[in-house]
Nucleic acid binder design. Structure first.
Lengths: 349, 349
DNA sequence: TTGTAAGCGTTATCAC
DNA sequence: GTGATAACGCTTACAA
């Protein structure tokens, strides 16, 4: 019942160190170290004795000291533009869980969508000698990235890419997702489709916009520039874009929002303006929020597993950290269309 | 244009160390250290020379070495039951941002709602000699907590409490929130109100349940046990509870869900079963999700700023880490009722 | 004002 | 098999 870690003496006992364990057994620190790490041959007797002493003294090796010596911290840095966003939070969880079982800790930084903060974050992490980096860039350049990291630390980018940089990359099937959304709207007979795009600083934004333009062209439709709005990934931006689109002389009959946030902004404006969805305007979204079925109208969207993005990225990173960087590997996480009512379909249970 | 961190020589240049800086100026390491840390008096000339050399060599002090020596890591551990949950993700962001500006890094651990994992996480963090702990407990006991941390590391609990443990605590106004919700349902004339409570392992769960019982009693109503369901904080649990409640011989006329997740589960079941909200059943929720206004029907709820919870907790922790633990401080983050349609009110824009 | 030396807790390289 | 000894990169008495 008594707390093992405090003593009756006035002095609070310091945590046991390797030297303490060694002394307690009567061997040298190096022997104790070898015993605990199972390195090298040694008499079973002393090994057992050391193990017993370590247990008895409640010895906990200091990762700090170990890292200083071995130059490995078993820590990876995780950098995202906004941890509070459902997507990044889920990716974080996926990554964290894989990393934890692989024996790595994660140090988290939020770049607040700023390239400068992102560079600061990377600098801090590199200073800490993290073994690897997982970053969803806010739009850093290849050169800046190399300058900060010295290209010494394995890095896997996810969500958005930085040219050919890094030991690997995980992104979504952006083009495929946009294609299926555009096709679906075409099937519903829409001719004037508007795009509410996200930030063009990141490839996750530009790939979707590019894919949209390509899909419309491929279908032989023409594409007025006024039907394309780009801005930050926020609900407010989605609302503003929708308002602008609805005020057009000939407004679109359908809107494709490039993220759930943007779709939500669109939804709320339509509600305010009493625009009936999907009759007066159809809406589809790249990104299926977990409450998509409960919105009014329920949201037709392209969905995917956000935690899988983090998990896959972490997997590549562990690979790169342990086996050295081999081929640069790119993974695309698949997406799938979920038909609901906002496009004009019926809910499917 | 050329990368500063690589050399033309075959050998990749090692990052400059304090010794390198000192040597380059022709002073001792201690002098260089003092110059860089601005400690002690010294000739402006040498100080300037050291600073210049550090700059020129791109010197970056090693936090690892520094921490080993000073026994301060400028790192705080952050432990939550589920980072992917919107509430914890927002709290994380609030905490992270305050900590970052205060000069601390955050090391993240997810306890996956398991007490054992939570203890492991705490152990890991303590081993890493974090300067402080921010934990939303999954239900650890006081004694276990003390055993792991040795009560050496300042800890601020948030969301849920551990008896009187820790240097401080930040929670929501659970009782006030439940009271206002129950009162509001009473105003709408409801006599049979059911509660879908969350996990009773955590005080955030038990406080809400207790407050509910008290509020009903205070109003002189009687409270059949069948109207209270407790379970995990998941949408699935909310759905299951709702299904059970609706099958009762005399089902409730109103439901109070103790979290947004639980309310969502309720909502989806009502949709499946064609139960009309709010006419056949009223629903209110403790926790106002950011898309609450866009649900069908829009959700009446008690809301609060989740990032403020993290920020406040981080504030208390920084205080405790820098000025030593003084009085144990408890903060309650305020909540406020948001009337929407699910209770029978009209939307207010 | 500056330098010397010890030490933070490990691990790695040698001898023995 | 095991033990000195020397790092890892920094801070801080204490001495000069």
């Amino acid at each position: 019942l008594r707390n093992r870690l405090t003593t009756d003496e006035s002095t609070r006992r310091r945590a046991a160190t390797l030297a303490d364990v060694a002394a307690s057994v009567g061997v040298s620190a190096s022997t104790a170290s070898r015993a605990l790490n199972g390195r090298g041959e040694m008499s079973p007797a002393t090994r057992a004795a050391v193990l017993e002493a370590a247990e008895r003294l409640g010895f906990r090796p200091s990762p700090l000291a170990r890292s200083l010596r071995t130059r490995r911290t078993h820590t990876v840095g995780f950098v995202v533009p906004d941890v509070a966003s459902p997507f990044y939070a889920a990716a974080l969880k996926g990554a964290q869980s894989l990393l934890q079982t692989a024996g790595y800790r994660v140090m988290l930084m939020d770049s607040e969508q700023s390239v400068q903060s992102e560079m600061d974050a990377l600098q801090t992490l590199v200073d800490h000698q993290v073994d690897g980096l997982l970053v969803a860039t806010a739009g850093i350049g290849v050169q800046d990235f190399a300058d900060v990291t010295g290209d010494d630390t394995p890095c896997v980018f996810f969500d958005s890419l930085v040219d050919g940089a890094g030991a690997g990359a995980v992104t979504l099937e952006n083009a495929a997702g946009i294609d299926v959304l555009v096709d679906h709207l075409h099937e519903h007979g829409h001719e004037r489709i508007a795009l509410i795009a996200g930030s063009q600083q990141e490839t996750s934004g530009s790939e979707r916009l590019d894919a949209f333009v390509a899909a419309i062209r491929r279908a032989g439709r023409n594409l007025p520039g006024e039907l394309i709005c780009a801005g930050p990934w926020t609900q407010a931006a989605g609302a503003e874009a929708t308002r602008a689109l609805l005020e057009l002389d000939s407004p679109p009959t359908a809107i494709l929002a490039c993220s759930a946030e943007l779709a939500l902004g669109c939804l709320s404006v339509c509600r305010d303006l009493d625009v009936e969805l999907p009759d007066e305007l159809a809406l589809v979204s790249f990104d299926d929020p977990y409450f998509g079925a409960l919105l009014e109208p329920s949201l037709t969207a392209v969905g995917y597993d956000p935690s899988e993005v983090g998990r896959a990225a972490a997997g590549l990173l562990v690979e790169a950290m342990e086996n050295g960087e081999g081929e640069r590997r790119e993974v695309r996480v698949p997406v799938a269309l979920v038909r609901r009512r906002s496009c004009g379909c019926e809910d499917t249970p």
